[in-house]
């Protein structure tokens, strides 16, 4: 009984230390817990895998810098798959902070596969007023992006010069930490019947399952767990897979603390009555 009273008065800093240890220890000493691939992640993989060599894919970096630990593993895994399949990748950002990050991630993954800028991939940069940008690309991509992020004319870059609008792009992937995929669904999906997949932070995932269920999304990668699943599918372990042991152990620690907290609460209430 005394133990429960001690737990009730525990300093919150002890909890912070316990969570930090639950994350740090599995990162240092690998456990290798199994991770199952879910249907929605497999759907994204299959959509990309079914595309013919040389098909263009549009990847939109719709996120801010603060969500990078979740966004980067997902974006890298998807881009690795695209480049390994020799697809042409068009990158852009509809949130300003995603611009430099998107450009850097694309450049690094493209270098891994020996891809050439302008020939195999292009980063178009940032456009504000996302609704106008999404709708505009449905009419003419070159009008929305006359130049790429580096100032090259998009009429002269081999990777994009023959692409006019969504009719020439079989798949759009929104890598997001907010509700931007909703705008892609509403303005590119509903209006132009464009196939859209999304890779979102875990906190946003539940918002997009209804769209997956209705077929308005062709697939969904959710958070670090989704990234780890995608890495399993492409057989290239990366940041997602490395973090999964820590993720599971932190969840276990939270569960233990949650149960202890509740038991303590009910014990205290029983004592009062």
């Amino acid at each position: 009984m005394k133990l429960f009273e001690h737990i009730k008065d525990i300093n919150k800093r002890v909890i912070f230390v316990l969570i930090a240890l639950a994350v740090a220890i599995p990162l240092i000493f690998k456990i290798g817990l199994p991770s199952k691939v879910t249907k929605e992640v497999k759907q994204v993989y299959q959509e990309i895998d079914a595309l013919e060599q040389g098909s263009p894919v549009l990847v939109s970096f719709d996120h801010e810098a603060s969500s990078l630990p979740e966004i980067q593993p997902m974006a890298e895994a998807i881009l690795r798959h695209c480049f390994s399949k020799d697809l042409k990748v068009l990158g852009l950002a509809l949130l300003a902070e995603g611009t430099a990050i998107g450009d850097e991630i694309m450049r690094e993954v493209a270098e891994e596969y020996g891809k050439e800028y302008g020939q195999d991939y292009v980063f178009l940069g940032f456009r504000p007023q996302y609704i106008a940008a999404i709708l505009g690309m449905g009419e003419d991509i070159h009008r929305v992006f006359p130049e790429d992020y580096r100032g090259n004319s998009t009429d002269e870059l081999a990777v994009i010069k023959d692409l006019n609008n969504y009719e020439d792009i079989p798949l759009i992937i929104s890598v997001a930490d907010g509700d931007m995929p909703t705008y892609w669904i509403s303005f590119a999906g509903a209006r132009y019947h464009q196939s859209i997949a999304t890779a979102v932070t875990a906190v946003m995932a539940t918002s997009f399952y209804p769209f997956l269920d209705s077929g308005q999304l062709v697939g969904l990668v959710g958070g670090l767990k989704g990234a780890a699943e995608y890495e399993t599918l492409i057989q290239k372990p990366g940041m997602g897979s490395k973090g999964m042991d820590a993720q599971s152990m932190a969840h276990l620690m939270i569960l233990v603390l949650f149960l202890l907290g509740n038991v303590t609460f009910f014990m205290g209430r029983k004592k009062k009555t």
């Binding site: 969570i19 994350v23 990162l27 630990p69 932070t201 993720q247």
Partner: peptide
Amino acid sequence: GYTVMSRVSLLIGRMQ
């Protein structure tokens, strides 16, 4: 649950 997972992922990123 997903929010907890998301926040833990951010911590993992910084720890890494």
